[in-house]
């Protein structure tokens, strides 16, 4: 399984990365099978993210990070709290991600701050963001204030959140394997219409086209179906 960790810490070393590492280690321990962990440090991508806004396309390092995130079976995202919310760099990374990249991906949300006063940032900022991106946010979020690093409670929250993410990653991984057989998915270039992947009965028994064909790495709806859908 592929676990991707997105860390928006800016200093080296950073407490944000420290929290990210504790979370990912806990997920690896609790996962049912081997986990391939990849860490995306947004600090290293800051310039390419800014250029992505002005250019419209991702530079090579950002494109690789986006590909890793889109292909992840589970995601850990950790941001420092800046001005009562996630950092601008953290938000910017998700602003330039493909709209569907996190569809159904289990996500563990976490944040670091100087004091406990901003701990609800997880609930009022991060959770709605990832709900919008149609990710599955696990119930436990982990907030670490400076004082938490020497206090009781953080380790338990890390373990609980990691356990939740590990379970979801297993569940989604199994469902993903089954999804191959779902009509309207997959299908190789040129063979659409030969298999039973043409139509499924929708509401009221009306057949509606759901076929998408794969070509050159794109999923395309055959033009005739798109045109037919517009007929009054």
């Amino acid at each position: 399984m592929r676990l991707v960790v997105v860390s928006a810490g800016l200093s080296v070393p950073s407490s944000t990365r420290l929290l990210a590492d504790r979370l990912s280690a806990a997920v690896v321990r609790r996962a049912a099978g081997p986990v391939d962990v990849r860490v995306v440090e947004l600090r290293d991508l800051a310039v390419e993210i800014a250029h992505r806004f002005t250019n419209g396309f991702a530079g090579p390092a950002l494109a690789a990070a986006q590909e890793a995130v889109a292909g992840a079976d589970g995601l850990i995202v950790v941001t420092p709290v800046f001005s009562a919310s996630y950092s601008g760099l953290f938000k910017s990374f998700f602003d330039v991600l493909d709209r569907d990249a996190l569809d159904g991906t289990p996500v563990l949300i976490a944040a670091t701050g100087g004091s406990a006063r901003h701990s609800l940032v997880l609930e009022h900022a991060l959770r709605p963001l990832f709900a919008h991106l149609r990710a599955v946010v696990v119930p436990t979020g982990v907030y670490a204030a400076s004082e938490d690093w020497g206090a009781e409670g953080l380790a338990e929250r890390v373990e609980r959140a990691a356990g939740e993410l590990a379970r979801w990653m297993g569940a989604v991984g199994a469902a993903g394997a089954a999804a191959v057989a779902v009509p309207g998915r997959a299908g190789e270039a040129g063979d659409a219409g030969t298999a039973g992947d043409g139509e499924v009965a929708g509401d009221g028994g009306v057949a509606r086209p759901v076929v998408a064909e794969e070509s050159a790495g794109f999923t395309v709806v055959p033009f005739a179906e798109r045109l037919a859908a517009l007929r009054p």
Binding site: N55, G56, F57, A189, S215, A216, G217, F218, V220
Partner: peptide
């Protein structure tokens, strides 16, 4: 304003279709 790889994919799609 685009990298070559993006152009390659779009043109490949058009040609295949």
């Amino acid at each position: 304003f685009w990298p070559a790889d993006h152009t390659r994919r779009m043109v490949e799609l058009y040609r295949a279709r």
